[in-house]
Amino acid sequence: MKVNPAKYYPLIPVYAIYLIMFLIGKNMTGMWELMAMLAFYCALGQAFNIFLGMTGYVDFGYVAFMGVGTYGMALAITRLVHFKGLGIGLLIIGLCLAMVMSTLLALAVGAVALRLRGAYFAIATIGVNEGFRYLIEGAKIWNGSEGIIFFAQMNEAFGREMASALSTFWADVLVLIIAALAAFVTLHYMRSKIGYALTALREDEDAAKVMGINVTKFKIIAFITSAIFAGLLGAAAWAIKTPYVFPPEVFEIHYTIEAIIIVLLGGAGTLLGPVVGGLIYGLSKYYLAIILPGFQLLIFAPIIIIIIVLFPEGTVGMLKNRVRGTTLERYIV
């Protein structure tokens, strides 16, 4: 199969933004934390967009996949810390476990919830997230509500200096890499039959079936892909960066809401959208907290409402319509 490089042009603006973020963070003092936060929001949007944006199904329990990813890393480190010589391999095992666990959860949830549509799906996924959290707490799985704290194990496994570098630098780099990978997979799906099938089922699921599209299969593909990236993100941005995991934090529904806002701000189902949405959301959250501490949400809520009512296609959605028919069309997807 020959690969047409022009198909991947739309990655250029996405990767350019990620590179600029990295360079700003690396070279300007005091900017790394802000860039790390923006990278997290971009990655979150990019990962969630693969399911939410491409299928139109609203997974209100999305954060659960980040939660199990965080647990995956935490369990790998706490259980395997005594095997000396694994070194950085331990992190790789942790990332793999995070992917496996989020895949398994996605399969279980998908089997139940993906039979449902619309509001029923959204409510079912809220149920999964909350149910899973309370199961962990109630049955005292993985230390129950006390959570897992593994600063000491991080230090033991990687040495104090490396553990600190992992937490303050490499975890954020990993988040950027995850965002970049998620963008690549998004574009790859868009350019393959998967993307066309997802567009069809998002617009009209019954018509899609009559056109020969196995909608269940494609929904599951998008669901699992999106879940795996969430699991990785939990492992990197939560477990490695802050080596502890508490059920009420990693299953907090507000992260799902933030992800939805980012996708919507940028433009659901677009490639560049989650990046733009992540930047707008992250920057305004950051600066509002400085300018008007305590009032961020009061200002945010009406803005969100106005955007939903007046600009439902999001920034990149609108931009896409603008550049239709120009050369920019090849870069903005």
Partner: peptide, 25 residues
């Protein structure tokens, strides 16, 4: 009124935002 025919994404987020607006007020 403007969201009656909108996809779930819009109505779910809009009602959530209304909730936040009330809480913060």
């Amino acid at each position: 009124r403007k969201l009656i025919k909108a996809p779930e994404l819009a109505t779910l987020l809009a009602t959530f935002a209304i909730g936040v607006l009330l809480e913060e007020t």
